[in-house]
């Protein structure tokens, strides 16, 4: 149910960068460790976007696999279940290499065709 707040955060981030222009696509990168349910996020996004420049925009989500790195032996591996120990040396000093992203990667905006190309 955090998807409601998360979709609000997405809309705010997009509005900040879109310069008032209508947005047709929002491209998100969502790490698997964020426990986001993609369908739920879409559902809330459509709702929260109403009355903003994001209204009617399509939300695209690139799911980023969760991978870890062992600080002791530099092993890097992907995880399917939340187990945070190095399978190589058994160490517990492990950092998340990917999987915690929740970022707006890009947006696609509609612009009037008469604007001169820079």
């Amino acid at each position: 149910m955090h998807e409601l707040s998360l979709s609000g955060a997405v809309v705010n981030t997009v509005v900040k960068h879109a310069g008032g222009r209508p947005v047709s696509v929002v491209n998100l990168r969502v790490g698997r460790l964020r426990q986001v349910v993609p369908e739920t996020l879409v559902f809330y996004f459509e709702f929260v976007a109403r009355g903003t420049i994001c209204e009617g925009a399509r939300l695209e989500q690139e799911i980023v696999a969760a991978s870890l790195r062992c600080m002791a032996c530099a092993e890097e591996w992907e995880i399917e279940i939340p187990a945070f120990r190095c399978p190589s040396c058994g160490g517990s000093d492990v950092t998340v290499a990917s999987g915690e992203e929740f970022e707006v990667e890009s947006i696609e905006i509609e612009e009037a065709a008469c604007i001169a190309q820079r």
Partner: peptide
């Protein structure tokens, strides 16, 4: 349509 790269944690 123009694509604008943002890359910002939401």
């Amino acid at each position: 349509r123009t694509k604008v790269r943002i890359v910002e944690e939401a």
